[in-house]
Design a protein around this nucleic acid. Structure first.
Length: 256
DNA sequence: ATGGTAGACGCTCTA
Protein backbone atom coordinates (compact mmCIF):
# COMPACT_ATOMS: atom_id res chain seq x y z
CA UNK A 1 0.00 0.00 0.00
CA UNK A 2 1.36 3.40 -1.03
CA UNK A 3 0.14 6.25 1.18
CA UNK A 4 0.65 9.88 0.17
CA UNK A 5 0.22 13.21 1.89
CA UNK A 6 -0.17 16.41 -0.12
CA UNK A 7 -1.17 19.97 0.73
CA UNK A 8 -2.84 20.91 -2.55
CA UNK A 9 -3.65 24.57 -1.70
CA UNK A 10 -7.26 24.37 -2.99
CA UNK A 11 -8.50 21.07 -4.41
CA UNK A 12 -10.60 22.91 -6.99
CA UNK A 13 -7.76 25.09 -8.27
CA UNK A 14 -5.48 22.03 -8.27
CA UNK A 15 -7.92 19.51 -9.81
CA UNK A 16 -6.16 19.05 -13.20
CA UNK A 17 -2.78 18.70 -11.47
CA UNK A 18 -4.26 16.30 -8.89
CA UNK A 19 -5.94 14.12 -11.53
CA UNK A 20 -2.76 13.97 -13.63
CA UNK A 21 -0.77 12.98 -10.57
CA UNK A 22 -3.27 10.29 -9.45
CA UNK A 23 -3.17 8.77 -12.93
CA UNK A 24 0.63 8.73 -13.02
CA UNK A 25 1.59 7.96 -9.41
CA UNK A 26 -1.31 5.59 -8.66
CA UNK A 27 -1.14 5.93 -4.85
CA UNK A 28 -3.53 3.68 -2.89
CA UNK A 29 -4.32 6.32 -0.27
CA UNK A 30 -3.97 10.11 -0.49
CA UNK A 31 -4.32 12.54 2.40
CA UNK A 32 -5.08 16.02 1.13
CA UNK A 33 -4.79 19.26 3.09
CA UNK A 34 -5.99 22.81 2.39
CA UNK A 35 -8.85 21.68 0.19
CA UNK A 36 -10.44 25.10 0.88
CA UNK A 37 -14.05 24.16 0.20
CA UNK A 38 -17.16 22.77 1.82
CA UNK A 39 -17.97 19.10 1.19
CA UNK A 40 -20.72 20.02 -1.30
CA UNK A 41 -18.16 21.90 -3.43
CA UNK A 42 -15.58 19.09 -3.31
CA UNK A 43 -14.90 17.68 -6.81
CA UNK A 44 -16.00 14.18 -5.80
CA UNK A 45 -17.13 12.99 -9.24
CA UNK A 46 -13.90 13.43 -11.22
CA UNK A 47 -11.92 11.92 -8.35
CA UNK A 48 -14.28 8.93 -8.13
CA UNK A 49 -14.04 8.56 -11.92
CA UNK A 50 -10.26 8.32 -11.42
CA UNK A 51 -10.88 5.32 -9.14
CA UNK A 52 -10.86 6.84 -5.66
CA UNK A 53 -13.39 6.98 -2.85
CA UNK A 54 -13.44 10.26 -0.91
CA UNK A 55 -13.86 11.06 2.77
CA UNK A 56 -14.16 14.82 3.11
CA UNK A 57 -14.07 17.27 6.01
CA UNK A 58 -14.31 20.78 4.60
CA UNK A 59 -15.02 24.37 5.41
CA UNK A 60 -15.46 27.44 3.27
CA UNK A 61 -12.35 29.32 2.09
CA UNK A 62 -9.81 27.96 4.57
CA UNK A 63 -8.35 24.65 5.74
CA UNK A 64 -10.20 21.44 4.81
CA UNK A 65 -8.85 17.88 4.64
CA UNK A 66 -9.80 14.76 2.68
CA UNK A 67 -8.75 11.14 2.39
CA UNK A 68 -8.87 9.45 -1.02
CA UNK A 69 -8.48 5.68 -1.36
CA UNK A 70 -8.83 3.00 -4.02
CA UNK A 71 -10.17 0.54 -1.43
CA UNK A 72 -13.09 0.96 0.95
CA UNK A 73 -12.73 3.81 3.47
CA UNK A 74 -14.11 2.86 6.91
CA UNK A 75 -14.52 4.42 10.35
CA UNK A 76 -14.32 8.00 9.12
CA UNK A 77 -14.01 10.57 11.93
CA UNK A 78 -13.93 14.32 11.37
CA UNK A 79 -11.99 16.50 13.78
CA UNK A 80 -10.26 15.40 16.95
CA UNK A 81 -12.36 13.07 19.08
CA UNK A 82 -12.31 15.22 22.21
CA UNK A 83 -14.70 17.73 23.76
CA UNK A 84 -12.94 20.83 22.45
CA UNK A 85 -14.98 23.06 20.18
CA UNK A 86 -12.92 23.77 17.05
CA UNK A 87 -14.47 25.51 14.04
CA UNK A 88 -11.46 24.77 11.82
CA UNK A 89 -11.59 21.62 9.65
CA UNK A 90 -8.06 20.30 10.10
CA UNK A 91 -8.20 16.57 10.91
CA UNK A 92 -9.89 13.56 9.37
CA UNK A 93 -9.15 9.94 10.20
CA UNK A 94 -10.20 6.65 8.67
CA UNK A 95 -9.32 2.98 8.31
CA UNK A 96 -8.27 1.52 4.94
CA UNK A 97 -7.70 -2.24 5.06
CA UNK A 98 -5.58 -2.74 8.21
CA UNK A 99 -4.14 0.78 8.33
CA UNK A 100 -5.48 3.65 10.44
CA UNK A 101 -4.80 6.96 8.69
CA UNK A 102 -4.90 10.32 10.46
CA UNK A 103 -4.74 13.26 8.03
CA UNK A 104 -3.80 16.55 9.75
CA UNK A 105 -3.42 20.12 8.58
CA UNK A 106 -1.58 21.78 11.45
CA UNK A 107 -2.11 25.49 12.11
CA UNK A 108 0.51 27.64 10.34
CA UNK A 109 0.90 30.13 13.18
CA UNK A 110 1.77 33.24 11.13
CA UNK A 111 4.81 34.24 13.19
CA UNK A 112 6.39 33.48 16.55
CA UNK A 113 4.43 35.30 19.27
CA UNK A 114 1.32 35.86 17.13
CA UNK A 115 -1.99 34.71 18.66
CA UNK A 116 -2.16 32.08 15.90
CA UNK A 117 1.24 30.78 17.09
CA UNK A 118 -0.12 30.07 20.58
CA UNK A 119 -3.14 28.41 18.97
CA UNK A 120 -0.73 26.29 16.89
CA UNK A 121 1.22 25.04 19.90
CA UNK A 122 -1.98 24.22 21.82
CA UNK A 123 -3.47 22.53 18.74
CA UNK A 124 -0.42 20.30 18.20
CA UNK A 125 -0.39 19.24 21.86
CA UNK A 126 -4.10 18.51 21.61
CA UNK A 127 -3.46 16.35 18.53
CA UNK A 128 -0.79 14.39 20.43
CA UNK A 129 -3.22 13.78 23.29
CA UNK A 130 -6.00 12.74 20.89
CA UNK A 131 -3.80 10.30 18.95
CA UNK A 132 -2.41 8.86 22.20
CA UNK A 133 -5.90 8.32 23.57
CA UNK A 134 -7.51 6.86 20.47
CA UNK A 135 -4.98 4.38 19.13
CA UNK A 136 -2.86 1.51 20.38
CA UNK A 137 0.32 2.50 18.56
CA UNK A 138 2.23 -0.61 19.70
CA UNK A 139 -0.29 -2.96 18.10
CA UNK A 140 -1.96 -1.09 15.23
CA UNK A 141 -0.64 0.18 11.93
CA UNK A 142 -1.18 3.91 12.34
CA UNK A 143 -0.04 6.61 9.91
CA UNK A 144 -0.36 10.19 11.17
CA UNK A 145 0.44 12.36 8.19
CA UNK A 146 -0.11 15.77 6.74
CA UNK A 147 1.18 19.32 6.65
CA UNK A 148 2.62 19.81 10.13
CA UNK A 149 3.95 23.29 9.40
CA UNK A 150 7.00 22.36 11.55
CA UNK A 151 10.55 21.27 10.65
CA UNK A 152 12.11 18.58 12.85
CA UNK A 153 15.61 20.00 12.83
CA UNK A 154 17.93 22.17 10.72
CA UNK A 155 18.45 19.41 8.15
CA UNK A 156 14.89 20.26 7.08
CA UNK A 157 15.80 23.93 6.45
CA UNK A 158 17.59 25.32 3.37
CA UNK A 159 19.08 28.23 5.35
CA UNK A 160 19.05 27.53 9.10
CA UNK A 161 20.54 30.95 9.89
CA UNK A 162 17.76 32.77 8.08
CA UNK A 163 15.08 30.61 9.72
CA UNK A 164 16.60 30.44 13.22
CA UNK A 165 13.69 30.50 15.75
CA UNK A 166 11.37 31.71 13.01
CA UNK A 167 7.89 30.32 12.36
CA UNK A 168 7.98 26.65 11.18
CA UNK A 169 11.42 26.26 12.82
CA UNK A 170 11.13 27.53 16.41
CA UNK A 171 12.06 25.37 19.40
CA UNK A 172 8.55 25.40 20.97
CA UNK A 173 7.04 24.19 17.68
CA UNK A 174 9.64 21.41 17.40
CA UNK A 175 8.97 20.45 21.03
CA UNK A 176 5.21 20.31 20.38
CA UNK A 177 5.82 18.06 17.35
CA UNK A 178 8.14 15.92 19.50
CA UNK A 179 5.27 15.35 21.97
CA UNK A 180 3.38 13.66 19.14
CA UNK A 181 6.39 11.67 17.91
CA UNK A 182 7.29 10.65 21.47
CA UNK A 183 4.03 8.69 21.71
CA UNK A 184 6.00 6.11 19.72
CA UNK A 185 5.79 7.35 16.14
CA UNK A 186 8.66 7.55 13.67
CA UNK A 187 9.45 10.22 11.08
CA UNK A 188 9.35 7.71 8.23
CA UNK A 189 11.13 9.86 5.63
CA UNK A 190 14.11 10.36 7.95
CA UNK A 191 14.48 6.59 8.44
CA UNK A 192 15.41 6.30 4.77
CA UNK A 193 17.16 9.64 4.18
CA UNK A 194 19.63 10.72 6.88
CA UNK A 195 20.98 13.71 5.00
CA UNK A 196 19.43 17.17 4.79
CA UNK A 197 18.42 19.08 1.70
CA UNK A 198 15.07 17.34 1.12
CA UNK A 199 12.12 19.71 1.16
CA UNK A 200 8.34 19.51 0.72
CA UNK A 201 7.38 23.20 0.67
CA UNK A 202 8.80 26.22 -1.15
CA UNK A 203 7.52 29.79 -0.85
CA UNK A 204 5.76 31.03 -3.99
CA UNK A 205 6.71 34.60 -3.16
CA UNK A 206 10.48 34.21 -3.19
CA UNK A 207 10.47 31.73 -6.09
CA UNK A 208 11.75 29.25 -3.55
CA UNK A 209 11.44 26.16 -5.73
CA UNK A 210 13.52 27.57 -8.58
CA UNK A 211 16.12 28.69 -6.02
CA UNK A 212 16.02 25.32 -4.20
CA UNK A 213 15.06 27.16 -1.02
CA UNK A 214 12.55 25.02 0.85
CA UNK A 215 11.54 23.42 4.11
CA UNK A 216 10.51 19.86 4.99
CA UNK A 217 7.23 20.36 6.86
CA UNK A 218 5.02 17.58 5.42
CA UNK A 219 5.50 14.34 7.30
CA UNK A 220 4.35 10.74 7.67
CA UNK A 221 4.61 9.58 11.29
CA UNK A 222 4.35 5.80 11.61
CA UNK A 223 3.54 3.53 14.56
CA UNK A 224 5.99 0.62 15.08
CA UNK A 225 3.85 -1.94 13.16
CA UNK A 226 3.45 0.54 10.28
CA UNK A 227 7.18 1.37 10.32
CA UNK A 228 8.03 -2.35 10.27
CA UNK A 229 6.04 -2.63 7.03
CA UNK A 230 7.51 0.53 5.49
CA UNK A 231 10.03 -0.04 2.68
CA UNK A 232 10.57 3.54 1.55
CA UNK A 233 9.44 7.16 1.56
CA UNK A 234 9.91 9.61 -1.32
CA UNK A 235 9.07 13.21 -2.14
CA UNK A 236 7.60 13.57 -5.65
CA UNK A 237 8.95 16.86 -7.02
CA UNK A 238 7.27 16.52 -10.42
CA UNK A 239 3.93 18.22 -9.62
CA UNK A 240 5.78 21.05 -7.81
CA UNK A 241 7.99 21.58 -10.87
CA UNK A 242 5.08 21.54 -13.33
CA UNK A 243 2.37 23.98 -14.37
CA UNK A 244 0.14 25.69 -11.79
CA UNK A 245 1.72 23.94 -8.82
CA UNK A 246 0.72 23.81 -5.18
CA UNK A 247 3.43 25.29 -2.97
CA UNK A 248 3.83 21.77 -1.47
CA UNK A 249 5.03 18.50 -3.05
CA UNK A 250 3.43 15.13 -2.27
CA UNK A 251 5.29 12.66 -0.03
CA UNK A 252 4.64 8.94 -0.50
CA UNK A 253 5.34 6.05 1.87
CA UNK A 254 5.26 2.42 0.74
CA UNK A 255 3.95 -0.20 3.20
CA UNK A 256 4.43 -3.83 2.20
C1' DA B 1 11.86 46.16 8.01
C1' DT B 2 9.58 44.85 3.87
C1' DG B 3 7.89 42.58 -0.12
C1' DG B 4 7.36 39.14 -3.08
C1' DT B 5 2.79 34.91 -4.98
C1' DA B 6 -1.40 32.25 -4.66
C1' DG B 7 -6.23 31.23 -3.50
C1' DA B 8 -10.95 32.35 -2.09
C1' DC B 9 -13.84 36.03 -1.41
C1' DG B 10 -15.54 40.23 -2.14
C1' DC B 11 -12.06 45.04 -1.64
C1' DT B 12 -8.96 41.31 2.96
C1' DC B 13 -7.42 37.26 5.18
C1' DT B 14 -4.45 33.17 5.46
C1' DA B 15 -0.53 30.96 4.18
Amino acid sequence: MRIATWNVNSVRARLPVLLDWLARAQPDVVCLQETKCLEEAFPREPIEDAGYQCAVYGQKTYNGVAILAKKRIEDVACGMQDDVEDPEARVISAMIEDVIVVDAYVVNGQEVGHPRYDYKLAWLRRLAKDVGRRFDLKKEKVVVCGDFNVTFDDRDVHDPGLWHEKILCSTPEREALAELVDLGLADAFRKFHEEGGHYTWWDYRTKGFQRKQGLRIDHLLLSPPAMAACTGVEIDLAPRAGEKPSDHAPVIATLE
